[in-house]
Simulated assay, not measured.
Amino acid sequence: MTDLILHHYPESPFSEKVRLILGHKKLPWQSVRIPRVMPKPDVQALTGGYRRTPVLQVGADIYCDTALICDVLEHVQPEPPLYPLHIKGVARIFAQWADSTLFWAAMTYNSQPKAAGQLFPSAEVGQAFMADRKAMRTNMTQLRLGDATSAYRSYLRRIAHMTDEHDFLFGAEPCLADFAAYHPLWFTRTRTPVLADILQPTPSLLEWMERMSAFGHSRFEELSAQDAVTVAERAEPLPPGQNLLVDSAFQNDHGIPLGTRVTVTAEAFGPESTEGVLMAATRTHYSLLREDPRAGPIHVHFPRIGFVLRKADAT
């Protein structure tokens, strides 16, 4: 198997989700540090527009969004499982809630002015970051700080009810739900410790966080962004059905045949589209073929849930 290359930056909560899963599965990987804000020319040479963090690269195949990245890592290393059979459905549903509702309540709380000095080395850096993220939220309604704080407190208590009963959220072993719930809380605890008192009323939750952090990040080596682009340029994208996504049957919910030039865009956060030729549209994902002057032919993969497929001439 070609090396797993994770494009990320240390402060990214969704990257921490994937880094811990790599640690849990003891998978070696290569680390490409990417900018926190635009421009991201090396990332977009691979994705064609998508700019959210992280991105997983395997040769000339690019996997976007952590929901899809988790499927890839499960295929690469099925044990220990992210989706145990007896809780496969509830683990996915809980993770979707944690990656959206919980995440945005937590990050609105984490981003309050009180924490600015811990988040950014200077006011200028902070202003640039907030302007960048505002541009990414063009299709979103953002919670007010007071409402987000109230919601976050309630969610922490509810998750703590689960950690009162088990070592992990659904039993003695972790599943996808644990990693999805952990990363926004990790941000509160490690990136904005001035705000971490919100975690103190739930000691079982803090104990669970210690168990999660103990998985670590496995073994990794640093790789430059240019070298990652070169890896893609020297590789060939794998045909649908032969890549690291397990399903390949065409599911035509849009009336758009394979071979059509299309765009894929996130429903909410991150308005940048990726354009290419539709190579696969299965029950779980879309795959686009695109050509890049630096990286050559690339297959870019997105999950169906959370993304919008359109004909390119309809955008």
Rank of each mutant, 00 (worst) to 15 (best):
S15L: 11
Q112P: 13
E236Y: 03
E236P: 01
R157K: 14
P237V: 01
A98E: 06
L238R: 04
T163Y: 14
Y152C: 11
K114N: 04
S273G: 03
T192A: 11
P121T: 07
N110W: 05
F168G: 06
L156M: 14
K88Q: 13
M107L: 13
P39C: 01
I93P: 00
F220K: 04
P203Q: 10
E236V: 05
D227N: 08
Q127H: 09
A314D: 15
V246N: 01
L6G: 03
P174M: 09
N243S: 10
M107R: 11
S12I: 09
A196Y: 04
F120A: 07
G255L: 14
L6S: 04
A312P: 08
Y63E: 06
D227Y: 02
V277R: 03
L176E: 10
S154I: 00
L56G: 09
T192C: 01
F168V: 06
M38C: 08
F187I: 00
A95T: 06
L245Y: 02
Q142G: 03
L4R: 01
D253G: 08
P10H: 14
Y50D: 10
K88C: 06
G59R: 01
A172L: 10
G296P: 01
R51L: 14
A280W: 02
A67K: 10
G59I: 05
T101H: 09
T163S: 15
L244R: 00
D3Y: 08
L68H: 03
T190Q: 06
R33M: 10
S154A: 12
A160T: 14
A160G: 12
E74V: 08
S15D: 13
H86R: 12
W208G: 05
Q118D: 13
A131D: 11
R157A: 14
A281T: 03
W208H: 07
L73I: 09
Q200E: 13
T315I: 13
V277Q: 09
T47M: 05
P78W: 11
V76L: 14
A196K: 01
S150K: 13
V300W: 07
G48C: 07
S224G: 13
S224H: 04
R304K: 13
T149Q: 11
V231M: 10
R283E: 12
V18P: 03
G216I: 03
M38W: 09
G296L: 02
L6K: 00
V55E: 13
L56S: 07
R51Q: 13
F129C: 07
H86L: 10
T284M: 11
R137W: 05
P80S: 06
T66Q: 00
E165C: 07
T315M: 14
R144G: 13
E291L: 11
A225I: 01
P257N: 10
K25S: 12
P13N: 12
P28S: 07
R36T: 08
I5T: 02
A172Y: 02
V76K: 15
D132T: 03
D71M: 14
P81L: 02
S12Y: 12
A95D: 10
Y286F: 15
E124T: 15
R157C: 05
G146T: 14
